[in-house]
């Protein structure tokens, strides 16, 4: 009984990761920083996506246009 409980507890803690760590109101400035964004450098990302789209025959392109030659 207790073994199961302990195991469940351990599993739960491990699975939750940092999800229980609440972001405090006074720490929100850290989350808003550029380095915390999913895409910290939008322009860099734009060019990377463009190259990936045009050179690798990748589909999608995430809103990145072609090279202007009509050939992607």
């Amino acid at each position: 009984m207790w073994k199961v409980l302990v195991l469940m507890g351990a599993a739960l803690t491990a699975l939750s990761g940092c999800a229980f760590e609440k972001v405090q109101p006074w720490d929100r400035d850290l989350l808003a920083q550029d380095k915390m964004q999913l895409v910290p450098f939008p322009l860099d990302n734009f060019y990377d996506e463009h190259i990936n789209f045009s050179k690798e025959a990748a589909s999608g392109g995430q809103g990145v246009g072609g090279g202007g030659c009509g050939c992607n």
Binding site: V4, L5, L12, T13
Partner: peptide
Amino acid sequence: KLLTYFGILLASLGTVSV
């Protein structure tokens, strides 16, 4: 009963701030 314990455990994991 196990379920109850589990529930208590779950509740106690969330940090309750007063």
